[in-house]
Design a protein around this nucleic acid. Sequence first.
DNA 1: GAACGTGCCATAGTCTAACTATGCCAGGGG
DNA 2: CCCCTGGCATAGTTAGACTATGGCACGTTC
Lengths: 109, 109
Amino acid sequence: MHRDEIPPGTLYLLILKTLARSGEMHGYEIANSIQRISDDVLQVEEGSLYPALQRMLIKGWVTAKWGTTAGNRRARYYQLTAAGRRQLAVEMSQFERVIGAITRVIEAV
Amino acid sequence: MHRDEIPPGTLYLLILKTLARSGEMHGYEIANSIQRISDDVLQVEEGSLYPALQRMLIKGWVTAKWGTTAGNRRARYYQLTAAGRRQLAVEMSQFERVIGAITRVIEAV
DNA sequence: GAACGTGCCATAGTCTAACTATGCCAGGGG
DNA sequence: CCCCTGGCATAGTTAGACTATGGCACGTTC
């Protein structure tokens, strides 16, 4: 079975936006933040999140450094780069453009 | 390269809705209709459309019969089934639910 | 101090579905 | 006759979200 909750491609947008809002975060925080703000509709699985973060590192959208959490655990803190901020703008406008177009189709008379 | 225009999964929604609106249509008409109503934002490639229609036939969401177009060409005419209409309702509510959740995240302060 | 739960990271492998590229056939116009 | 267009179809590639699994360290409980 598949839950199909997060449409492929939009995970980047969600992560980029979350990091832009909150500055430095580690993976767990990112996932929890997305889940909470979406009222539990979007559940970011660890097996989706960490591969996505790796790809984003490679693309240069984020940087990572190891640190320690408030709960005294080791964690990787991610931060947006300038390229990441640019990518966020791109993804936002693409999202709006495409969702607007789909909405036109499904609301057409 | 990839154009990334139609998010995976939403093609079903677009086709179902288009058929619901216009009754019987053949593939070419469906693609043109979606493209036109979306103001050319959504471009349904033939290599995406026909496989999707095949899957929808197998799932029982549509039926097909061969006919002749106004331009005197042979074409397969697709029509929604009752299951297809039910599926359209499901896809609509899922779409709204997920897009609403994503919107909350990308508009959060 | 052993056992367990939880926080946190990571990867291997599966699967869906949209894409590219290609091919076919028929009608009509130059 | 040839090409353009309309129209259908499939084989193969690719991205990326998922499941399943594993590991480790801290705190708490008994």
